[in-house]
Simulated scan of single mutants.
Amino acid sequence: MVVTAAGCWIKDHRTDVDGVDITIASSAEYETWYGPEFELQLKCTAQQDLLKDDHIVWQMKAEPLRKLINPKRFTPALLGVLLVPEDAGSWLNQSEEQLLLEGGMYWEYAAKLGEIPEGQGSKTVHLPRSNLFDVERLLGIMRTIGDGGGR
């Protein structure tokens, strides 16, 4: 819903062989690029204790993290973690007039997640709470990438 509200669209990946689940694309023109896009690795959890005062923590396995943070990626990549209520029955409220999802998704550029040493099986990464995935921030991501940044 956020992607559509921002005037963007999703390209679906059938598998996440490259460590990502979807590509989000735009047809807007920016300073450097027309039609910016980025790849997104999606995670979902109901573990409320992962949410801290200024960030959410997420434990990433080494292999998918290495793929996600690979500096040779042609398309910028991000990690998104959706935090939903513990009670699965309260995630979604739907009627003819509205569709409400309780929870929020936090994101970070893969390049900012840091390296993972060889031999280490996983790494805890931090996604700032200020990076709430909403229309304004999605358009900001597109602007950053479209202006030549975001890597």
Rank of each mutant, 00 (worst) to 15 (best):
T15E: 12
T15Q: 13
T15H: 14
D16Q: 12
D16L: 10
V17G: 06
V17P: 03
V17K: 12
V17M: 10
D18H: 15
G19A: 11
G19K: 10
G19W: 09
G19F: 09
V20S: 03
V20Q: 01
D21E: 08
D21A: 06
D21H: 07
D21K: 05
I22T: 03
T23G: 02
I24L: 02
I24T: 02
I24G: 00
A25R: 08
A25V: 06
A25I: 04
A25M: 09
A25W: 02
S26T: 05
S26Q: 05
S26E: 02
S26G: 04
S27Y: 06
S27A: 10
A28H: 07
A28N: 07
A28E: 09
E29M: 09
E29I: 08
E29W: 06
E29L: 07
Y30M: 04
Y30D: 01
Y30N: 03
Y30C: 04
Y30I: 02
Y30S: 02
E31C: 10
E31G: 11
T32G: 02
T32E: 08
T32L: 09
T32K: 12
Y34H: 08
Y34F: 06
Y34P: 00
Y34T: 05
Y34C: 04
Y34D: 02
Y34S: 04
G35T: 03
G35M: 04
G35R: 05
G35W: 00
G35V: 03
P36S: 08
P36W: 05
P36C: 08
E37K: 12
E37W: 06
E37G: 08
F38S: 02
F38N: 01
E39D: 13
E39G: 07
E39H: 08
E39M: 11
L40K: 00
L40P: 00
L40G: 00
L40M: 05
L40A: 01
Q41R: 04
Q41F: 01
Q41C: 02
L42N: 06
L42F: 07
L42G: 04
K43Q: 01
K43F: 00
K43M: 01
K43S: 01
K43W: 01
K43Y: 01
K43R: 05
C44M: 15
C44V: 15
C44N: 14
C44R: 15
T45Q: 03
T45I: 05
T45M: 03
A46G: 15
A46I: 14
A46V: 14
A46H: 15
A46L: 12
A46W: 14
Q47E: 12
Q47L: 13
Q47V: 14
Q48K: 14
Q48Y: 10
Q48L: 14
Q48G: 08
D49I: 09
D49W: 11
L50N: 11
L50V: 13
L50T: 11
L51S: 11
L51A: 13
L51H: 09
K52E: 03
D53Y: 14
D53H: 15
D53E: 15
D53Q: 15
D53C: 12
D54E: 13
D54S: 14
D54T: 15
H55N: 10
H55M: 11
H55I: 09
H55K: 14
I56L: 09
I56G: 03
I56W: 06
I56N: 04
I56M: 07
I56S: 06
I56H: 04
V57C: 09
V57S: 11
